[in-house]
Design a protein around this nucleic acid. Structure first.
Lengths: 268, 268
DNA sequence: ATGTATTGTGATTAACTGAGTGAACGACTG
DNA sequence: CAGTCGTTCACTCAGTTAATCACAATACAT
């Protein structure tokens, strides 16, 4: 039926609204009101699969949130705000929540975070790994060594590298694809590319990161079945900090050797 | 005790995390990990008031969300991402959700929204009223007449007025305080201030809005008990659209008379 | 004016998620 | 080898939310 495409949009909208904190009835009612424009409880009940007697509660929940207006006629009429306004609304709500959260967390965040550690931590998920990489780069004082493949050099990481470079941190990027090299010729003028120790073309690829010779991260892409849909759990990394950390020690040795090698071949 | 200020931050952080979709245990565990830095299940259980046997589940929930890393040692060690990274994380998550939502809603949003209507809608809450005002101003084609007090002329509304002005809509602002007049001398060059019909200084104040002589909104501030804490339910508005709408008709009459009066006294 | 149909409000019940507890298994240590 | 600690799993209980029903109020029609 012609409802099929819109019914998909309908269910995704309901899902998102629920994840944003609305009850199922309220979410369904809101979606119905968006499509109907102006409607009575009966109309909503017919379209949204919400018991008619519950539409009033759902609409009230929505009204308290400022998502729906009510016409005090008989029968009552309901009206949903436009999708743009909905976006603005949740944007404000979200900003408020996140800023409250980060404020509170900042007040708790202890200083004893980047001390010496033994052993290594594991991270799964590409976004989570990217977060750690950005953390490390942002905290760099002297030097960042980053071996990666173009696929994993996102804008966010580029920005972090640029910022670090601006603060006088020396950036060493390895095994960049052409397009990436072009990009970072602009973005990170101070980046000094060097030849990678390994040939990544055959491996499933991943990244190597060393910051200030005391924080290191190693990741591999683990495309489980097929690499067609970018799986959420498609990257796993281990990382460790501290000059005596075993992972740091071994990577420092490798990188130091490799970088010296590189400098020699460049006639420095 | 010295814990008191931080325990407040603790509970607000937990609240926000829960509202962002985490379970109570997960939220408490995360907050404990942020303060502890690196900790075992026992440490978390002691500080966070989470049953020790449940710390593992909570940490797993957090790990799947990319908020916590795990060291596979014995005993297991947990580590929480920094507050800045937490902010970035939820920002991304939120952006994804809201864009998915607005996409879906746009696909549903029916065109039959701004047709002729009888009767008026009611809105409560200052933010909700502001949303309607912005909606109206953004949809203006020819003319915006806005009578308000400085308190209710927020940046958002200023931006909306500026945008409308840029698109050739004539803006008529009334009863502006000096500072506001200054501001909109810059922001809205095309704004034509005019003398308000009423003296608002004694009333609880509110706003009047008419757009294209076919959409009108009237609001009053209803400071219930005291105006000291800006109550969330502190403004109530009614609005209606359509050239035959009763609220539109009466306000159009008032404004037309007033604006003509104003033009005469200015010698136009 | 009265009866009927429909709207609005409240109460009650059922189902489900999530918090809390305890038991059992496994690993490391003395 | 035994005991202790760490880890996981299974189960109970409570609170919340969905769903249904019953009743009151209003509007419309005859």
């Amino acid at each position: 039926m012609s409802d099929d495409p819109s019914s998909k949009a309908r269910s995704t909208a309901v899902e998102q609204l629920k994840s944003l904190g609305l009850s199922t009835y309220a979410a369904r009612t809101f979606v119905a009101l968006v499509t109907l424009g102006e409607a009575t409880a009966q109309d909503v009940s017919d379209l949204a699969d919400v018991p008619r007697t519950r539409v009033y509660d759902a609409a009230d929940e929505l009204r308290e949130r400022g998502l729906v207006d009510v016409k005090r006629s008989n029968p009552k009429q309901f009206w949903a705000i436009s999708s743009e306004t909905t976006g603005r609304h949740f944007e404000r709500e979200y900003e408020h929540r996140v800023s409250t959260l980060t404020d509170a967390l900042d007040r708790l965040d202890d200083a004893n975070r980047s001390t010496e550690q033994r052993g290594v931590w594991t991270v799964t998920g590409r976004e989570a790994v990217t977060d750690r990489v950005i953390d490390f780069i942002s905290a760099a004082d002297d030097e960042v060594v980053y071996v990666t493949v173009g696929e994993l050099l996102t804008d966010e990481i580029g920005e972090a590298l640029s910022r670090a470079s601006d603060e006088g941190v020396s950036i060493r990027l390895a095994d960049m694809s052409e397009s990436i090299e072009d990009r970072f010729g602009r973005d990170v003028p101070a980046a000094q590319p060097f030849e990678s120790l390994w040939d990544w073309s055959d491996t499933p690829a991943g990244r190597l990161l060393m910051v200030d010779q005391e924080k290191t991260l190693v990741s591999v892409l683990v495309d489980g079945k097929g690499e067609y849909p970018p799986e959420p759990r498609d990257e796993t990394a281990i990382w460790g900090v501290g000059s005596t950390n075993s992972l740091v020690v071994v990577l420092k040795a490798l990188f130091t050797w490799q970088l010296d090698e590189d400098r020699d071949s460049n006639g420095e």
